[in-house]
Amino acid sequence: MVLDADLGRSTRLTVFEERFPKRYIQVGVAEQNAVGIASGLVYAGYRPVFVSFTMFTIGLCWTQLRQAAYAGLPIKIIGTHPGYDIGPDGGTHQMFEDLALARVIPELDVFCPSDVVETRAALLTALASPRLTYVRVGRHPVPVIHREPLDFPIGRAEIVLDKGRDYVLLADGSMVFTALEVAEQLAAEGQRVSVVNVRTIKPLDVELISELGQQARLIVTIENHSVYGGLGGAVAEVLASAASHSALLRIGTLDRFGESATTEQLRQANRLDKSGVLEQIRNRLL
C-alpha cells in the first residue's frame, strides 16, 4: 500500500495511482496522519510506503516515525526533494537535517541511493526488509553511474573510484556524482584519490570507514545536508573512535537555513557544485 499526502504530482505517485489504484491511499495534506495510518495498515499484513518531501516525512512526522520504529513496524518512508533539490521553495521546504533526525531513531535504517538504477535497487531492498526504512531520493537530475542488475547490500558502502587512498571522498545520494567529477579532476592533477558511495547511512559501513581512516591523509565527506549529524557527523563518530586517524573535511550546509533559488544556483552559491567542492578540498590538500 502506498500513501500520498496530496503531493502525488510532485513525487510522481500519480503514476503509481494510475497503475495500482487499489493500493493507493490519499490522506490529504496530513502527513502525521499518513504515518499513523501506515502504522495501522501493518496490522492487516501490508507493507505501507509513505512518499512525500523529505521535510514532510522525517521533518514533520518524527514522533510518529519514532513510535513506529519502537513498535518494530516495517513501514517504508520515501523522502523526496532533499536539501537544495527543492530549490525555489526556500527555507521552509529545504531539509538539511533529515539524516540527523532519522539516524538517531533506534531500529530505523537510512538509505541514500545515488542514481536511478541504485534507487530501484534500494527500494527493492527496503521493501524486503522487516525494519522501518527511510529512503532519501534526490530530485536533482544526475547521470546514471550504476548498471543493472545491482545489489543494494545493507550496511556496505561502495567504492566507485579507486585511484589511490591519499584522499578519500565519501558521498551520498546526488553528491556521489559530484564527488566523482571532483575526484577525476584531482586524479588528473596527479593526486591519489578514491570515491566511496555511502549508500546506507545507517547501518554505516564502520569497517570500511575505519580502514580508510588509517590509510588516507584526508577524508572528505560531501553531502546535500547539514555537516552536523548526517554523513559527515556519522563518519566523524567512526573516525574519532580510533586513537589516531585521517584528518576529516566535512562538506555540506553549515549552521543556517536555505534560501530560495534554483538548485543549480544554490549548489553554486553554497560551494556544493563541482568547482565549489574542488575549491574546498584544495584549501585542505596536505
Partner: peptide, 9 residues
C-alpha cells in the same frame, strides 16, 4: 532573484 527575498513562500 537570488539577491532579494521575494520568494515562492
Amino acid at each position: 532573484h537570488t539577491d532579494d527575498v521575494i520568494y515562492w513562500h
